[in-house]
Simulated scan of single mutants.
Amino acid sequence: MTAEDALRVLDGSYGDGPQALDIVVTRHDVLDEASFRSTGVHELYEQLFPAIERDSPDDIVRWLLSDDVGEPRHFSVGGRQMSYRLDSRCFILRAAGRAIGLGFFTYDHASDLIFCNHVGIAKAWRGGGLARAFYREMVAMLDALFPRNIGVVLEVEPYDRDRLDAIIADLELTGRPLAADEQAAIRRLLRARWYDKLGYAMFCNALTMQPLLCRSPCLDPCLPSSEWAEGEENYWLMWQARTGAPSAQRRASEFWQNAVAAIYIEILAKSLVDDDPNGRRDYWDYATALVAQTMQQTMMTDVRLVRCLGDEDSALLSRWRRLAIDLPI
């Protein structure tokens, strides 16, 4: 993929009227920190995601422009040699040169998986199919950048159907405003719906047809080790195979094991420990043990890839739509 190929133009009626929007990519069109920051993408990132979900701006710049640039990196932990090779890219959707959308992806060369870190569109630009068009353009560009990739994997927060049913039932009766924690609960379902509409499938237990639970290690190794457990989060993993990828016929259980290892060992643990290999040996032991526990618990599970939303979810979404509440995801 050449620098000329990287910039894509989306034509259509988006926002207040017909206008051309373009997509630029780090290390093709956006080559340095000053250019990256000048797009306003950091400000958009802060608008789209709560503080608890955001990485520091300096870390993002470092990953995109100096650390995760497709070159092998080496370090040692307790005398054991480690290596990993990542390539992170930020796709920036612009209107008049300013960011109105972003997508942050990391390609893991060890597994040929692409991890979707963040995707978002400014609230004023949602609607009219722009988010979906932007996402599909990014996937096409990722395929050009990484022709060996076999697909995209991402995390979604689990949602509790019983709780959502109770929240929606109360809203149907009272019409009261949504509390902040209720908004967060509803957003989990809405986010899963968005990826479901894009064609993603959920890793599920074939016997129960329930999503497999994956526990993420704490993302802050600088915290006292006694606090790491408090920083752990549960996720479901969703997967979209690359069309025509030769390995797309592999068993879902193999994809599951590879996805867990890619996200939480290759992308997360190794990059965090590489920052301070001598000082973070305990964190390495903690993170790898937690990931091994997830993989061991599901080792004998018959894993299936199924569409995320079932009949119960569709019914909840229908009731939610009838409430006509504007809740950006």
Score class of each variant (00 low, 15 high):
I263L: 08
C204N: 06
W236K: 09
S253I: 01
F255N: 10
A201K: 12
L223A: 10
C222Q: 11
R187A: 10
E230N: 07
L223V: 09
F255D: 14
E233G: 03
P217E: 03
A245W: 03
P211D: 03
G231Y: 01
W194N: 04
E266Y: 01
L212G: 09
E227W: 00
R215L: 12
V260P: 02
T208C: 01
A229L: 10
E227D: 09
Q240W: 05
A248R: 15
A248W: 07
W228R: 08
N234E: 13
N234I: 01
D220P: 02
P221E: 11
M238Q: 12
R250L: 07
A262Q: 13
L190I: 12
C218S: 15
S247E: 14
A259V: 02
G244W: 09
W236E: 11
P246G: 07
W236L: 06
L237N: 06
T243V: 12
A229S: 11
R250C: 03
D196Y: 02
S225W: 06
A245S: 15
A201W: 00
W256Y: 14
R193W: 03
R187V: 08
G231P: 04
L189I: 13
M202H: 06
Y264F: 13
I186W: 07
R251K: 13
A245T: 07
A241S: 10
R187T: 02
W239V: 05
R242N: 05
Q210R: 12
I186A: 00
I263T: 10
F203W: 08
P221N: 12
A201H: 02
E230R: 15
E227T: 10
T208K: 08
E233C: 05
A192P: 09
L237P: 04
L189K: 10
P211E: 01
F203E: 01
R191C: 04
Q249K: 11
A245K: 08
N234T: 00
W194E: 11
V260N: 00
P217R: 13
Q240A: 08
W194M: 06
C218T: 12
G244D: 01
W228H: 04
R193D: 10
I265C: 00
A245Y: 06
A252C: 00
A229C: 01
A259I: 02
L237R: 14
Q249L: 10
A229V: 11
L219P: 01
A252S: 14
L223T: 05
L198D: 14
N205A: 03
V260Y: 05
R250K: 14
R193K: 14
G231F: 00
C204V: 14
K197C: 04
L207H: 10
M238P: 03
S247H: 05
C214K: 04
A192W: 01
G244H: 11
D220I: 04
R191P: 05
I263H: 09
E232Y: 00
Q257Y: 08
N258P: 08
R187F: 06
A201F: 04
L190G: 04
E266V: 03
A262D: 06
R193E: 11
S216G: 01
P224E: 11
W256T: 07
P217D: 09
